[in-house]
Nucleic acid binder design. Structure first.
Length: 424
RNA sequence: GUGAGUGUAGCUCAAGGGUUAGAGCACCGGACUGUGGAUCCGGUGGUUGGGGGUUCGAAUCCCCUCACUCACCCCA
């Protein structure tokens, strides 16, 4: 035991942070808007645990994905089970559907959830180890109209939160019938051009040729321009689905750009993949990402139930949102003496039961100090409780914004405060 | 995991080898014992991220380490 260890202050662990009250207010508003909007479209909240068996993600997210291979918070619990803090939400919902036979309910099923996710990444702007997602999923609806509807719903939320210049990128990644052929062709092309690629892309040619498309090196871009595109390989069914999806987007008046190289990092997507990107977010500019995953439920041993959904990153969303915080108003009690303190406490109970926020501080102060304090705290009203008031049963109420003062009984002042609240 | 940048008071920043590391804001108190914001005065607050080295002398120069930030990778 060494006693000269450098004293180290305990701080939040890397990639996590505290959301202090001023900021938490913005979170509350954003979350409330999301819930309101999703409920308008028939979505209902489904809360799954933060912690799940590790195999859920190995199977669902994909054993070869970056998330599973190097970004999961995985540990062994006291019972010897391997458990993981969820890095994403979709596999949990799929698990819940199968476990509770939710597929027996009338379809389509629509769920939403808001909560923390965990990924052991190196933190940077817009990327944290504990981050928060707004997640929605629809099960049992094959019609591409629903693909467009969730994009439209995402845009409604963004516009409610004052997010401007959000660009929608769309693609179809095909299905198990048509995608493999494309993968082979792309690999063939990239391997053939290997010696003209940068070292980084030479590695990608073997591991994930799709990533060569977003290399910034000019020579790589030239090479990549000659590569085949998924759009030329889509089977008739996928092609039609993608076309209808885009028709519905046009129907909704949602501007979008086809991004033939948009694949998303998760293995399970089929057909539709999309992303919404925003400005001023730095390198991590995707504010929302989603797509269709028609095979996942079945692969988990469940019924043949198609799915589609998206996730929005709350941290990223809030960094581009412009949220008006409604002004709250409260009454500060300026009392003089022990008796008045108790009367203040009693009056505050009355006002609170009328829905009025009250603050009675326990430290005794002079009248000047009370007002000074009330001003600093941003009180809208100061209720003066002193000997004179107690004798008369009438109190002085000062409007701190207009510097006007009123006198009245407790009930008269209640209606005065409530009346003003309604006017605002 | 790789690379770069930054670490001085709660916050924003000075001091660039030379007394006891300063200022503004914030906080607490006073001028002002029944009425706020302004002004003035005073006060609390620092092992200069941590450790080692060079030097008569280190916040300052060197090495190590930690933290934060941004980027790569990947993604929300």
């Amino acid at each position: 035991m060494s006693d000269n260890q450098p004293k180290k202050e305990i701080s939040a662990i890397k990639g996590t942070r505290d959301i202090l009250p001023d900021e938490a207010r913005l979170w509350q508003i954003a979350e409330a808007r999301a819930r309101e909007i999703f409920e308008l479209y028939g979505y209902r909240e489904l809360r799954a645990p933060v912690i799940e068996p590790t195999e859920l993600f190995e199977k669902g997210t994909g054993a070869s994905s970056d998330i599973v291979t190097k970004e999961m918070y995985t540990f062994t619990d006291k019972g010897g089970r391997s458990v993981t803090l969820r890095p994403e939400y979709t596999p949990s919902v799929v698990r819940a559907i199968i476990e509770h036979r939710l597929d027996l309910q009338a379809q389509p099923l629509r769920f939403y959830y808001i909560g923390p996710m965990f990924r052991y990444d190196r933190p940077q702007k817009g990327r944290y180890r504990q981050f928060h997602q707004i997640d929605i999923e629809v099960f049992g609806e094959k019609d591409p109209a629903v693909d467009a509807e969730i994009v439209e719903m995402a845009h409604r939320l963004l516009s409610q939160l004052g997010v401007e210049k959000a660009m929608t990128l769309v693609n179809s990644v095909g299905c198990r019938k048509c995608r493999p052929a494309y993968g082979q062709e792309l690999r063939k092309a990239s391997m053939a051009a290997r010696d003209r690629l940068c070292p980084d892309c030479q590695r990608k040619a073997e591991l994930n040729p799709l990533r060569i498309f977003d290399c910034k090196v000019e020579s790589c871009r030239e090479v990549a321009a000659t590569f085949p595109l998924i759009s030329d390989f889509l089977c008739p069914e996928c092609r039609e689905h993608f076309q209808k999806f885009r028709e519905y987007l046009d129907f909704y008046g949602i501007e979008h750009r086809v991004e033939p190289t948009l694949v998303r990092g998760l293995d399970y997507y089929t057909k539709t993949a999309f992303e919404i990107v925003a400005e001023h977010l730095g390198a991590q500019n995707a504010i929302c990402g989603g797509g269709r995953y028609d095979d996942m439920v079945k692969e988990f041993g469940g019924p043949d139930l198609c799915g589609i959904g998206f996730a929005m990153g709350l941290e990223r969303l809030l960094s581009v949102a412009r949220i008006q915080v409604p002004k709250s108003s409260f009454v500060y009690f300026a009392y003089l003496g022990q008796q008045a303190k108790k009367d203040s406490l009693r009056l505050a109970r009355l006002l609170r039961s009328e829905g009025i926020e009250c603050l009675v501080e326990f430290k005794e102060r002079g009248m000047k100090a009370h007002f000074s304090r009330a001003n600093k705290l941003g009180a809208d009203w100061v209720l003066v409780v002193g000997e004179d008031e107690l004798k008369k049963g009438k109190f002085q109420l000062k409007d701190m914004v207009n510097s006007r003062q009123f006198e009245g009984s407790a009930l008269e002042l209640v209606s005065l405060i409530k009346g003003k609240k309604i006017l605002e």
